[in-house]
Each structure stands twice: as structure tokens, then as C-alpha cells.
Design a protein around this nucleic acid. Structure first.
Length: 354
DNA sequence: GACCATGATTCTAG
DNA sequence: CTAGAATCATGGTC
């Protein structure tokens, strides 16, 4: 038995109302001449209209009486049906819109940047991608991009907590409205379908708020990213102490200024820079030194003296500590010199200058 | 603003 | 992949 038939069955108390007649003005006119059933409907409507003129108690009593009326369910389903056919069908046309391309774009971006999606993985992948784009090695990225990742994680956290808040608010509001409509459906014609539609409308409204959240999150990520990449592009001179450490190593290993990986790591740690920066520095230094030895002579002498003084101090301390002076202790005891194993180049020919 | 110093990047050769 | 070399881009000084 379909809905229509069931509805009609429920209407048997109304007399000869036929399915095809519902909502048809001609049939209404026909019905009016039929007498009794029409009289019943008229009475009910009269009672409904009269409620507004009565006191609250009377109205409640009247409402209760109406609710208990034997024809109430039938009348109700007719009203629901009519409403369904008219208002809701018109409204429903523009409601079924496809997923918003804008929101899809934002979703994709947030996923790619590691803000949404699986925990951590996306974020570090994005950071690594950014590092690769900026020319950094993956090893260095762990140090260099920790700040970037920390900020990204912060954005991620804010995004998720806000999203959760919105979702909670949305479900709370939806539940509230649903309960309200269910409650009201006892007194006015509201079909489950209509409640469904109302829920969809609420979800759409909330998703537009979510879109704003996604948009501002995307903007924040873009700003962070551009700042991060700009910071990498900008050249900052190393501090004096770092340059001194590097120069000290360079001139004390002038015969073979190719620090091993371990030495580079140690120098990097000492100077507060990355290993690749150490490599860059040595690369630049070697080439520039070779190109213009005369210019660097003074600097070389300066560091030679410095190294000698340091070595003397160390050996003095060593002898004070009762340890027998070892040959070469003056030239091999500084930490940087201890790292001189592992030189690669065998064609460095600038030794004669030093 | 010119000029130099210097860190970073890119290309090439081994 | 690494070092050398050239080059770029920016910082600092005058």
C-alpha cells in the first residue's frame, strides 16, 4: 500500500474524498455540496481559528481536544501531503547543489600542507617539499625547519579545535531544531522529509562558516610558507664567533682545508649553523683564498698566531697537570685539529703560502 | 648609491 | 656525490 492509498484509507472518515480530488478546486466545490464530511472539516478549521481568541487554558484544552479528534491523523497527513507537493517541491529545486569547488580547493590545499588529513605525516612531507624547493638537504631540514613545523603544528591545532567547535555547535543546533520540529509536528504539518531538509539547510549554513575557517587557515599557511622561504632566501652574515671558529679551522688546516663530515658537524654545532652552511663556507673560502692569496695573507698570519698562542696555552696546562709533554701536542690538541682525518682533496696546493 | 664582502645557488667535471 | 668555479643576491660600509 503506497502512501497515497494509506492516506486515503485514513480519510475514510471524511466520506467520499477521492485521491485525484485532493488540492483540486473543482473537486472542493463538488465536495461542498456533499454536506456532512465537509461540515466536519469546516468545524475543525473553525476550532483552530478560534484558539487565538481564547485564553491559554481554554486553548490548551481545545488543542488537546483537537489532538484527540478521530480525524486528526487523516487531516494531518493530507496537510503534510499538500505542503510536500507545493512549498517543499519548489524549495527543493535549488537545494541539491553540487559540492562547492571552492571548498574542495581549500580541502585539497589543507591536505597537501598537512593541516588536515593524517597526523604529522603530511606536515613533515610539506616541510620536506618546501626544503627541497628551497635547495636544502633533507638532513638539514630537520633543524632548519623545526620552527616552520612548529608553527604549522600550531595552525593545525587551532584549525582542528575550531573545526571541532563548529561541528559540535552544528550538531547541537541540528538536534535542537530537530527536536523542536518533531515537537511542533504534533501541532502543525511537518513531515520527516521537511525535517531532513531543514537539517540540510543548517549543515549548509555551518559549512559556509567552516569554509571561512578553512580559508583563513589556508591564508595563515601561505603567509607562514612565504615567510619561511623568504627567510631562507635572505642572506644573513654569520656571527663573529662563528666566522672565527671557521677561519681558525681553515687556517690551521691550510695544508688540506677539507673537513670531514664529523668535523663539519662539530663546526656546525660550534657555530650554530648547518652542515651545508659549513660546506658552503669552506667551498667559498677555498676558492676565494686560492684566487687571492695575497689578500688573505694578513688574515692567515693572524690566525696562525692565534693558533700558536692557543696551542702554547694548552701545552702549558698539560705540563702543569703533570703530564709528560708529547711531541706535536702543540699542533694536534685543538678540537678542530683532531677532526682533520678524512680529507678528500689531494690537489690542494696553497700550502706554500702558509 | 657605489662598492666590496659574503652566504647561497647553479653548473660542470671528475 | 663532491669540489671547483661562476654567478646571484643581500648586507654592510663609506
Amino acid at each position: 500500500m503506497d502512501d497515497q492509498t494509506r492516506m486515503m484509507t485514513g480519510l475514510t472518515g471524511l466520506g467520499g474524498l477521492q485521491q485525484a480530488d485532493v488540492g483540486d478546486p473543482d473537486s472542493v466545490r463538488k465536495q461542498q455540496s456533499l454536506g456532512q464530511p465537509q461540515q466536519d472539516i469546516g468545524d475543525i478549521l473553525q476550532q483552530i481559528m478560534a484558539i487565538t481568541d481564547e485564553s491559554l487554558d481554554e486553548a490548551q484544552a481545545r488543542k488537546h481536544a483537537l489532538n484527540c479528534h478521530r480525524m486528526k491523523p487523516a487531516l494531518f497527513s493530507v496537510l503534510c501531503e499538500i505542503k510536500e507537493k507545493t512549498v517543499l517541491s519548489i524549495r527543493g529545486v535549488q537545494e541539491e547543489d553540487p559540492p562547492d569547488p571552492q571548498i574542495m580547493r581549500l580541502d585539497n590545499m589543507l591536505l597537501a600542507e598537512g593541516v588536515s588529513g593524517p597526523e604529522k605525516g603530511g606536515g613533515s612531507a610539506a616541510a620536506a617539499a618546501a626544503a627541497a624547493a628551497a635547495g636544502g638537504s633533507p638532513t638539514d631540514s630537520s633543524i632548519e625547519h623545526s620552527d616552520y613545523r612548529a608553527k604549522l603544528a600550531q595552525i593545525r591545532q587551532i584549525y582542528h579545535s575550531e573545526l571541532e567547535k563548529y561541528e559540535q555547535a552544528c550538531s547541537e543546533f541540528t538536534n535542537h531544531v530537530m527536536n523542536l520540529l518533531r515537537e511542533q509536528s504534533r501541532t502543525r504539518p511537518i513531515s520527516p522529509k521537511e525535517i531532513e531538509r531543514m537539517v540540510a539547510i543548517i549543515h549548509r549554513k555551518f559549512s559556509s562558516i567552516q569554509m571561512q575557517l578553512k580559508q583563513s587557515t589556508c591564508e595563515a599557511v601561505m603567509i607562514l610558507r612565504s615567510r619561511f622561504l623568504d627567510a631562507r632566501r635572505k642572506r644573513r652574515n654569520f656571527n663573529k664567533q662563528a666566522t672565527e671558529v671557521l677561519n681558525e679551522y681553515f687556517y690551521s688546516h691550510l695544508s688540506n682545508p677539507y673537513p670531514s663530515e664529523e668535523a663539519k658537524e662539530e663546526l656546525a654545532k660550534k657555530c650554530g649553523i648547518t652542515v651545508s652552511q659549513v660546506s658552503n663556507w669552506f667551498g667559498n673560502k677555498r676558492i676565494r683564498y686560492k684566487k687571492n692569496i695575497g689578500k688573505f695573507q694578513e688574515e692567515a698570519n693572524l690566525y696562525a698566531v692565534k693558533t700558536a698562542v692557543d696551542a702554547a696555552n694548552v701545552s702549558a696546562q698539560a705540563s702543569q697537570a703533570n703530564s709528560p709533554a708529547t711531541p706535536n701536542s702543540g699542533t694536534t690538541s685543538t678540537p678542530s685539529q683532531r677532526c682533520s682525518i678524512g680529507f678528500r682533496s689531494d690537489d690542494w696546493d696553497a700550502t706554500e703560502v702558509y
